[in-house]
Structure formats: C-alpha cells, structure tokens
C-alpha cells in the first residue's frame, strides 16, 4: 500500500521549458500539492522515502502552463515566473510551483501578497534575475572582431542571456553580434537585420570562429574613462560598490 506521507519528486532539467513541464506533470498527477515536490536535476541531494519521477520535457505542456499563468494571474506574474525559472537557485522549480498553487487560487492579487512566503520567494528570485540582467545590459562590452562582428562576453550567476540579448537586438538591429555566456556555453546570436537566437557555443569555439583583432577604439575608450574622473574626488570604494569586480572581467577600461 502506498504510504500516505511519501512524497513524489518530479525531477526536471534546469531550463524554463523543463521546469514548466514539471509543473504541468506534478499538477496533473493529482497526488495533492502537499505530496509532490519539484527538483532540478543534479542540484539537490536525494532523500529517502521519496519516489523520484523523471520529467520528459514537452514544449506543448510548457506552453500551456505559460498561457494559463498569463490568463489567470496576469502578464506581470508570467514575467516573474519566467525570470525565476532563469535563477541559479536550486529550489527554483519548487518555488515556482508553490507560487502557482497560491497564484491560481487568488488570481492577479496574489502578486501583492508579499508577506506570503511563496509569493515573497518568487519575487525575490525574479528580482535577483532582473537586476543581474540589467547590470549586464549596462556593463557588457562588445569587442570588435573580424568583419565588424561584435563579440560580447558575460559570466552571469543567473541564466540571464535570454533577457540581455533582446535589449541589444532592439538597439543594434544593423549589427552582427554574438553574446557569450562564458560559464554556460550559451550564445545569443544576432545577424544584421534578422532575429536573434539562442545557441550552444563553447567560448573556445567562439574564439576560433572570431579571431581577436586590434581595435583603436578600445584605447580611445580607456583614454576617455581615465580623463573623465575628477582626481580630487577619487573614491575607489564608491566605484567598487557601484560596479563590483565581478562585472569588470571583460570591461576594457579596467583591464591592462
């Protein structure tokens, strides 16, 4: 006989589609919200007294969940769920599920219930992801390679590439550019005049494709950056709190 207390754990991949499929499967299993749990594969310790169910990603199921969130809780909630799914937190799949339990019950007003732990947690994840994406929109530097192709490199904690690339696609429609997530081996690719796509691409391969090239504007930028600071107001601590070191890895002005 099945133990009443035993939990079923749905184990899924780490991308938004994987997580949303797991939400669909867990919900449709009708085992009861308190008896299911979602886990991202390889990011948690296995536990005793649980039965583990691997989730096979199905874009159709993911699309249905997304549509339901948009319709019943609203566009802003969908934006938050999507951002939370890009988070680096191991608990993100479970956090999204818990939010949706309340979200589908209360509807759009669920977003305001910040004192509710499930809502707060989702808000926290989504805010962290949104903030990091914004930092990389600010601090990303493009390096001009052969044929005027622009190469941007980032090493974000959260998987923000799909939030960063559209900003530049809108801004630089006539440029060929490539944004590399150095840690994940992902690339946002934008051909001039076309639509951008996400692709798997390891940094070494990218370097092979696009040879480094001398660029006079790199020096000019450093010159400008040096000249614009006021010596009498020098304040490295303030500079560092506003532009932490981890954003400077590829920022020309801080490299020798």
């Amino acid at each position: 006989m099945e133990n009443q207390e035993e939990k079923t754990v749905f184990v899924c991949g780490g991308d938004p589609d994987d997580i949303l499929t797991a939400v669909y499967d867990a919900w449709a299993s009708r085992k009861g919200h308190s008896r299911v749990r979602l886990e991202v594969e390889g990011e948690s310790q296995p536990e005793l007294f649980c039965s583990y169910v691997p989730v096979e990603t199905d874009r159709e199921k993911a699309r249905k969940v997304a549509a339901a969130v948009k319709k019943k809780i609203g566009g802003r909630a969908w934006q938050m769920v999507y951002r939370a799914a890009l988070s680096r937190e191991a608990s993100r799949a479970e956090d999204i599920y818990r939010f949706l339990v309340g979200g589908f019950y209360y509807g759009p007003q669920a977003l305001d219930m910040l004192a509710e732990p499930a809502v707060y947690r989702l808000w926290e994840l989504s805010r962290a992801v949104g903030n990091e994406a914004h930092f990389f929109r600010e601090f990303l530097r493009f390096d001009q390679r052969e044929n005027r192709i622009l190469l941007g490199r980032i090493r974000p904690k959260n998987n923000v590439l799909s939030l960063v690339t559209p900003h530049f696609a809108d801004r630089l429609p006539q440029e060929n550019f490539l944004i590399l997530d150095m840690g994940r081996g992902l690339a946002g690719v934008h051909p001039a005049g076309g639509a951008w796509v996400l692709a798997r691409l390891e940094p070494q391969e990218a370097e092979k494709l696009l040879a480094a090239k001398a660029d006079p504007f790199r020096e000019l930028w450093k010159t400008f950056h040096r000249a614009i600071g006021v010596e009498q107001r020098k304040n490295p601590r303030l500079q560092q709190s506003r532009m932490p070191l981890r954003y400077r890895e590829f920022a020309e002005e801080f490299l020798e």
Partner: peptide, 19 residues
C-alpha cells in the same frame, strides 16, 4: 537606425571618482 533609449537611464561604467 542605430540605438534606442530607456527611460530609467543606463550607466555603462563608473569612473575613478565613483560617478
């Protein structure tokens, strides 16, 4: 065309004086 504008403003770097 080249470019766009965002109403919240975007900082691209911080100078030695923290501005």
């Amino acid at each position: 065309a080249l470019g766009s504008a965002v109403s919240c403003g975007i900082c691209h770097s911080f100078a030695a004086d923290g501005r």
